[in-house]
Design a protein around this nucleic acid. Structure first.
Length: 460
RNA sequence: GGCGCCAUCGUCUAGCGGUUAGGACAUUUGCUUUUCAAGCAAAGAACCGGAGUUCGACUCUCCGUGGCGCUGCCA
């Protein structure tokens, strides 16, 4: 059997984290088996669908690198003929019918059922085909036998056997009209015609599955294998939503690397031999049957950690491109070592811009202004004749300056912070920074001296 | 209300009848040290509850409890 999976997002919102994760599983499964992965846009609901969202989803998937195998993206809105054909077939065979109950009648029915503690569903009493001439509200429903004491079940690859009672399903809706299909019907028609072998989707679709199984049966088609993966929750264990913060992939693009997001989503629901791996490596190990059943909470801290791992591996060219700055190559490791999110690279702008800071920041641990000034002056003098070639060269000199200053103010033991601290602040403007020696090498002799002299002026 | 899914440290998870219940992130502490970061070392931290099966249950069964999902002429 040819393995073919699909992702079928509806363009009613930006690409959601959960959707991206389910897409990843579909992609992984298809790649693992050397099968195909199909992308289809479910835009039957014209009211809620939009081109902007469709674009966002497609762009997001591309950014993540989850490539699909169909050259032309399928859109349900372009497949109306297919649905009509199937619908007519069902109607002609008496497996579907036109229902004329009004929304009010439907509502009364379900209210009564809730009162009676029954399953809410519509059991249609007047079924029509061909459509009645009366006009008015009408909808196509499946001819489900609610008297039948029959179980509709399947072997879910992730969850095992699941079954529902057919009688509790009711005459659910298929289409508003011959050319306005509804979700459950359109999905089945598409999955049949696209020869989808495995439907991997979120667990929120579990209760749709028996309905779709009934449609497969009515259409005389063999259903695919189903696998329902769990959802992703926010920290409060509620379905991940807007109120938890960023939920769409596009909101993560400025901070995170696609490889990191993929990697993180991948091990949220599956255990690989190790934690940091590419999607290709994941595909090798992926096994649908071993996907976890329970929902996972989206832990941003762990995402950050994964991201930092990938940032450390970034090449100079890639980092420059991502940050959009001409960063000297020797400064790259200084930055990638310390970065959790791409956008935080701005914290290092002292590497290419002159920093601003308060004079007080230059003073090391309760020492005086005078000592600090003295140290800076000594540093300037000591650095002037050097060629800034090796870190060791600078260290020896700076250690000497520290010892010198310590002696001058009658400190029994050399405190190297006396020299390194003011230099750090002079060069970075921050109290937290990489080793000032490394900074000096990155900045070069000219800028280093310029900033030290600047610091002497600031401290006055 | 109906139907369904799920349940190990704070979080992601390993476990597949007998383990000091392991790892990772996070947290805390130490080492290093001129401040961060990184690295290394260490610490604290978990089997939802109750029955049953069994010589023995985190593991199997049942019942609770809790969380979540669906319950649309949305997908």
């Amino acid at each position: 059997m040819k393995i073919r999976t699909r992702m079928a997002p509806s363009p009613t919102g930006n690409l959601h984290i959960g959707t991206a994760r389910t897409t990843l599983f579909n992609w992984l499964f298809a790649r693992h088996h050397g099968g195909e992965f199909i992308l289809r846009i479910e835009d039957t609901d014209l009211e809620r669908s939009s081109k902007e969202y469709e674009e966002n989803i497609i762009e997001g998937l591309k950014w993540l690198g989850l490539n699909w195998d169909n050259p032309e993206i399928y859109r349900q809105s372009e497949r109306l003929d297919i649905y009509e054909e199937y619908l007519v077939k069902l109607l002609d065979q008496g497996k579907a019918f036109w229902c004329y109950h009004t929304k009010d009648e439907l509502e009364d029915e379900r209210k009564q059922q809730v009162v009676n503690k029954e399953a809410p569903r519509h059991i249609c009493s007047h079924k029509h085909h061909p459509p009645a001439e009366t006009g008015g509200e009408k909808i196509i429903r499946l001819a489900v036998n609610s008297q039948l004491d029959r179980k509709i079940g399947w072997e879910d690859v992730i969850r095992g056997h699941i079954e529902f009672e057919e009688g509790l399903l009711g005459n659910f809706s298929l289409a508003k009209d011959l050319r306005i299909p509804l979700y459950n019907f359109a999905v089945v028609a598409d999955d049949i015609t696209m020869e989808i072998s495995h439907v991997i989707r979120g667990e929120d679709h579990i209760s749709n599955t028996p309905k779709q199984l009934l449609i497969y049966e009515a259409l005389g088609a063999k259903p695919p294998v189903f696998a329902h993966n769990s959802m992703i929750y926010g920290p409060d264990k509620a379905k991940l939503s807007k109120r938890h913060g960023a939920t769409s992939i596009s909101e993560y693009r400025k901070d995170y690397l696609p490889e990191a997001i993929l990697n993180f989503m991948g091990f949220l629901g599956f255990t690989y031999s190790h934690e940091i791996l590419s999607k290709e490596e994941m595909a090798k190990e992926f096994d649908l049957a071993k996907v976890h059943k329970s929902a996972a909470i989206f832990d941003q801290k762990k995402l950050n950690w994964v991201n930092s791992r990938y940032i450390k591996k970034l090449s100079a060219a890639d980092l420059k491109k991502l940050v959009g700055k001409e960063i000297p190559d020797i400064a790259i490791p200084l930055i990638t070592e310390r970065l959790e999110k791409i956008s935080d690279a701005g914290d290092f702008n002292y590497l290419w811009e002159k920093p601003e800071y308060e004079a007080a920041l230059l003073i090391w641990r309760g020492h005086s202004r005078e000592d600090t000034k003295l140290a800076l002056e000594k540093i300037a003098r000591a650095l002037a004749p050097l060629d800034f070639f090796s870190p060791d060269q600078l260290k020896i000199i700076l250690d000497e300056v520290a010892a010198d200053v310590s002696a001058k103010i009658q400190l029994p033991k050399t405190d190297r912070g006396l020299a390194y601290w003011p230099l750090r602040v002079a060069l970075s403007g921050h109290e937290k920074s990489p080793d000032p020696v490394e900074l000096a090498l990155v900045l070069g002799k000219e800028k280093t001296l310029e900033r030290v002299v600047g610091a002497i002026e600031i401290i006055g």
